[in-house]
Amino acid sequence: MSLIRYQAPELTPWSASDRWNTLRDELNSFFELPSWSSFPRAGQLFTGWSPALDLYQSTDNIVATVELPGMRKEDIEISLHDGTLTISGERKRESTDGEKAERTERYVGVFRRSIALPTRVDASKVSATYRDGILTVTLPKAEEVKPKQIQVS
């Protein structure tokens, strides 16, 4: 589920089936919003900043990485609800007393990325690190979805 799509869709080589899933999730997410007014910065849905997100899957973990250069750790929020990982936060503008911006390409303000996880995860074991401007969230898969080998006795 992507509430805010990443702004460079030509860089995302999805397979056709993925694309349909994304579209379905996007439509679903629209109906899930309680109201536009309660959604922060609804007016900036397509103009706000939307950091690049990658998702990896291994036998034991789901790992999400998000490019968030120049943030403070305290300003990043990670939440897990109903199989959806949401990463949100705010990049604050440094005080600009007596200064003027000559050129501004960096986004400041609120961002929010949500993504539906492909399997169930153990919410109590989620961990995150923030290094070199990249947030890495490791979500261990729930025991019941991990592949298990059963020995014939």
Binding site: L11, T12, D54, Q57, P118
Partner: peptide, 15 residues
């Protein structure tokens, strides 16, 4: 120097 992450990439936006 990107961190090595185990597993297959299932959703990709970064460059």
């Amino acid at each position: 120097s990107l961190p090595k992450i185990e597993g297959t990439l299932i959703h990709h936006e970064s460059r």
